[in-house]
């Protein structure tokens, strides 16, 4: 089965259980939105999928296209097709976007094969244009001194360049002005297709007007409490998270 699947996942950090029995499936080709109050564990889930070493998985399974992700190092997961756009992207001082992406793409090539420079730059410029980024950005160090919006755009640029099978976008919309939101949404939409599964973490229904999800999940206190079609997001906006909690199959800890 071509899907990113999480089954009964439990995650602890600093002796605190943050994710408590979460189950979720994102088939390749679909876009799933994940919403939930602050501190409910959305970013924790994203980082665990990507293999962040600080989080401890105490129980559960995470599979990507039938392969156990939990056994793999973060970079192996990435090279096999998992991408995460960070809520708070790190700076990489002195390393230009062009060099960074080049190294990232090179790491996916078989040993001994060299990335063709002209093709690479052609593609890079094409994607930058798609995202409304100035070419001069390629020579700036990754995220160094970037505005919040520029960082988010750079995350999507990397997504476009690395062509993953699954992408987890953690609040890529926050910090974007309305025009930038449209551009980034346009960028993500242009990547949509049968070969990409997306887990879109957001607080705002607004984004979902531009990137229309196939499914919407609501996460509260480390668990999915409701799942539905795109209308769920609207309903959630009207009724709030208390309503979502009430709908949970089992009582949810607050």
């Amino acid at each position: 089965m071509k899907e990113l699947s999480v089954e009964n996942l439990h995650v602890t950090i600093a002796d605190q259980e943050i994710v408590r029995g979460l189950t979720l499936r994102v088939p390749r080709g679909e876009v799933h939105a994940l919403m939930g109050p602050n501190g409910s564990g959305k970013s924790t889930l994203a980082k665990v999928l990507a293999g962040h070493p600080d989080y401890q998985v105490t129980k559960g399974k995470v599979m990507m296209d039938g392969e156990n992700l939990l056994e793999l190092e973060p970079d192996e997961r990435a090279r096999r097709g998992l991408f995460m756009a960070f809520q708070y992207p790190s700076e990489v001082p002195g390393v230009t976007i062009a060099n960074f992406l080049r190294a990232a793409i090179q790491s996916r090539l078989p040993e001994g094969e060299e990335l063709e420079a002209t093709d690479y730059y052609a593609k890079l410029y094409e994607k930058m244009e798609l995202l409304g980024m100035d070419r001069s950005f390629t020579s700036r160090a990754v995220n160094e001194g970037f505005s919040g919006g520029e960082k988010k755009r750079t995350e999507i640029l990397q997504l476009a360049m690395l062509e993953p099978k699954y992408a987890v976008l953690d609040e890529t919309d926050s910090g974007l002005d309305i025009d930038a939101l449209k551009t980034v949404a346009h960028g993500v939409n242009s990547l949509r297709g049968p070969d990409l599964g997306v887990l879109l973490i957001t607080h705002y229904q607004r984004l979902l007007n531009y990137i229309i999800p196939d499914h919407v999940h609501v996460m509260v206190a480390g668990r999915i409490v409701r799942s539905g079609r795109k209308e769920l997001a609207l309903e959630l906006e009207e009724r709030g998270y208390d309503w979502a909690r009430e709908g949970a199959a089992e009582p949810v800890l607050r």
Partner: peptide, 13 residues
């Protein structure tokens, strides 16, 4: 460590 994790997430060892 966050910087290294970020870079690893892009595929670098």
């Amino acid at each position: 460590a966050e910087q290294i994790f970020y870079m690893q997430q892009r595929g670098l060892t």
